[in-house]
Amino acid sequence: MAVDLSMPILVVDDYQTMIRIIRNLLKQLGFDDVDDAADGSAALGKLKEKRYGLVISDWNMEPMTGYELLKEVRADDQLRTTPFIMVTAESKTENVIAAKKAGVNNYIVKPFNAQTLKSKIDAVFGA
């Protein structure tokens, strides 16, 4: 199944440079509809206003972390099926296991490259 390049994507990171990097990588991959949020609570607000095809989120943010955002999304009837990829420097096995248990669709360890991001998006959408 081909990935829908027109789907809106929400990038969540408290570091503007990382948002810019992911935006550029997504643009190179053909995605143009990209919004961003600086933490989990800001992201949750945007997710309730607009239907996103994918969330790409960092883990370590304040006040709401990406892990908390993931659990909120999976607990919300309207959002529970939204594909969710964690992109984070949290590189302990327990983090990956916790995210997987919470329902994350894929997990990318920083630093990463365009090919890794593409392959994980493809994997999430079965492309």
Partner: peptide, 16 residues
């Protein structure tokens, strides 16, 4: 509680 460990040393970090 939120498992905020930050970046690990390369020898301890899980590989992609």
């Amino acid at each position: 509680k939120l498992m905020l460990h930050g970046p690990q040393e390369s020898s301890q970090a899980i590989k992609q």
